[in-house]
Design a protein around this nucleic acid. Structure first.
Lengths: 240, 240
DNA sequence: CGGCATCCGGGAAGATACTG
DNA sequence: CAGTATCTTCCCGGATGCCG
């Protein structure tokens, strides 16, 4: 084997599914873009900002490196994400949604809201930090946030997020560097699952803190109020 | 091989995908419900009312009976659709979305709108009658329909549809029996592809009628106006 | 360690033929 | 018309290993 670098030639980086639907319908085309297994979950994980290959692997347990590579190639080829190299300080490669890729948030949330009504949906399973924040954006009820002005800081999986409430609106995002939420009225630290259990599952704050699942700092009343702003939709009752 | 009928015993009709995502995120659960190949397109085809097995096969070329059976079982088991037997006159079996299944229209349309911006989307391909009507619902622009009061009848694939415009709103549906659109201001008859070509593709009515692709009856001005009410979103320009 | 390529086993999807 | 049975193909998932 020589050291010749011919690898790229044989690569024939095809993107997209080999099996077509041959359908002009927009929905069918959407499925060709993000309908393959894991594709939409990868998009979801990038919704709050760029991530590295290994971040994606960590946040999507069960997804093999093999398939992740294929999906990233496909999503890049269709213009949903781009691959970018970070500046010298941390010369890592990250994957980032394009503006159009970001627009997928609309239907990703819409799908989540619909599926949350399924009798088969179990909200107590493993969940990623990104999914948790997106679930806030999905289930946020402006009515309930009337008159609630506060900032909530969240630490999950060594990342920092914040939710800023003002005039019945919410902005929920990931902080760029991973820090800088110190001025928040409340800071909650714990696994995404614990945070979701508190906010969506209605589990009492005291119990979770006592169990060591959640770390709490700041104004207790604000935290309690925060947990009421994201009501889950009613479950469907199957005709059966 | 004996003629013993043991088939049902070994059938173990499981529904849903064997491969799980194990993710509490609503989006992930949605993918377990309708993320398998063809599943969402079957849901789409039922969006305007019940259909028979063979209707679905006809409207989804490329989908084999094999897979259709599996999907229908899965979608029934999760409560997205039900199987119903029609009364004596036509003792056929039909598949019908449950109320919850119908709610999927929200994100089906949202996906379609998003994907229509894809550079890879080719609206001139084959399309089903149902998709065409759904594309009207998706792309309808109330602003452009201000002051437009009219009823458009459509005949596609031996089914009848209508679009009723009033006060800047639109109701677009399939007629139950397949007829009764005779009072419409305009009646267009042709393949879904031809209708979509006229409405979305901006192809001139005269040319299409001359080519025999479209049959036109009624008020020409109304027809021309109708074709302006569903502007497609701008295509994405890839950074390349 | 991050980003792949490669090989392998199991299972889902596709095509065709066949049955009540 | 409404599926079922069978065979083939190919995708998915896991493991391993290469290379910077």
């Amino acid at each position: 084997m020589s050291t010749m670098k011919l690898g790229k030639i044989t690569k024939q980086s095809d993107a997209g599914p080999r099996r077509r639907y041959d359908d002009a319908c927009g929905t069918a085309h959407a499925l060709e873009l993000v309908g393959e297994r894991w594709a939409l979950l990868i998009v979801r994980e990038l919704m709050l900002g760029p991530k590295r290959f290994s971040d994606l692997r960590a946040d999507l347990p069960g997804l093999s490196a093999n398939v992740l590579t294929q999906r990233l190639e496909g999503l890049e080829a269709t213009g949903i994400l781009t691959r970018r190299r970070l500046p010298p300080p941390a010369p890592a490669q990250v994957y980032e949604l394009t503006p159009w890729g970001l627009e997928a948030e609309t239907f990703v949330k819409s799908m989540g809201r619909w599926a949350a009504r399924s009798p088969g949906h179990d909200p107590t399973m493993q969940i990623s930090a990104t999914s948790t924040i997106l679930s806030f954006r999905t289930m946020f009820n402006p009515e309930r946030a009337k008159g609630f002005d506060a900032t909530i800081g969240l630490r999950m999986d060594d990342q920092a997020f914040f939710a800023l409430f003002k005039d019945g609106t919410m902005i929920a995002e990931r902080t760029p560097g991973g820090g800088d939420i110190d001025g928040a009225d409340v800071i909650l630290t714990g696994s995404p699952r614990a945070v979701a259990g508190f906010v969506h599952g209605g589990q009492p704050l005291d119990a979770m803190v006592a169990a060591g699942a959640l770390l709490f700092e700041g104004d207790r009343a604000v935290a309690e109020r925060f947990a009421t702003l994201f009501p889950l939709p009613d479950k469907v009752t199957l005709p059966a």
